[in-house]
Design a protein around this nucleic acid. Structure first.
Lengths: 147, 147
DNA sequence: GAAAATTAAATTGTATACAATGTAATTGCA
DNA sequence: TGCAATTACATTGTATACAATTTAATTTTC
């Protein structure tokens, strides 16, 4: 690539990543609206469906989000009755987020979402696997650099 | 994949896309801070460096952003002196965004940014090409669905 | 040629994101 | 043990994002 082309939008890896992420999230929006969830709330609930109980720090590590995003988001999920929030008596610094019964019930309603969105991506199973692998490789490398 | 696993974070293509995009943008942030630009302002300037003059609609199509995002962002870039904003006399609905001399000068200062960020991604040239291709394929498919 | 339809931006309202800072609890170490 | 350092979360401030609506200009249609 010539030096003068490096600043072209189409030659940057970050841009299609950024655009693709946003567009795919947009495909989730109408489906998630029926569950009264935003995309960020949805991925938070996915962690809750797996973990049942988790503190904010671990949640943030898994979702690549900090307390500035999670604190208000978790208060909203609490307001909807999907999780509860209480301090850990053993360590009052920790906030434990716990899945409620209502939050668990939501999992069944969300079951169809991934397949529905999968239809829109237009990639074969093999291509999706390939993309998946490259993204996690990148994430792994960038994560190491944090140390 | 078993049915019960579809709602696991690690099995969704969207999540690594979302996380990877955010993490990569975070790598741009300190570099762009020296240019007094945010990431979104940076990709807007990349279009401006190519186009010199463009209306908000076309800018939005290229960046996958709408006027709700672009209007305040362009006012900020205008405030910094990098672009000017004026209505098209031939069609007063259109707002023409024009690169200023100061905005053009910024291009030289930004020249080193792509290579600097490229170091962080940890992918080989071939892998980056592959990822790039898959992302644009997805973007193309999702774009068709808009019609 | 005027009303209806369309188009382009701007505005409003809600929800992230994240850096930077603040605060309180806990840990580690002299 | 007492205090400095660390940790966990909350708060503040700034900047997106985008759906939905509004406003104004232009096109289309009859």
């Amino acid at each position: 690539m010539s030096e003068s082309d490096t600043l072209k939008l189409e030659n940057q890896l970050c841009f299609p990543l950024y655009a693709c992420s946003k567009e795919l999230v947009r495909h989730y929006t109408p489906l998630l609206k029926q569950l009264d969830l935003t995309y960020t709330q949805y991925i938070t609930m996915m962690v809750m469906w797996e973990s049942r109980q988790i503190n904010v720090r671990k949640l943030g590590e898994m979702l690549y989000l900090d307390s500035g995003t999670l604190t208000p988001l978790l208060k909203k999920l609490e307001g909807k009755g999907y999780v509860s929030r209480e301090r850990n008596p053993q360590d009052e610094r920790e906030l434990l987020v716990t899945l409620t019964e209502k939050g668990l019930q939501l999992k069944d309603e969300a079951a169809a979402v991934p397949a529905e969105v999968g239809k829109c991506v237009g990639l074969s199973g093999q291509e999706a696997q390939q993309l998946y692998g490259l993204l996690y490789k990148m994430l792994g490398v960038m994560n190491e650099q944090k140390q």
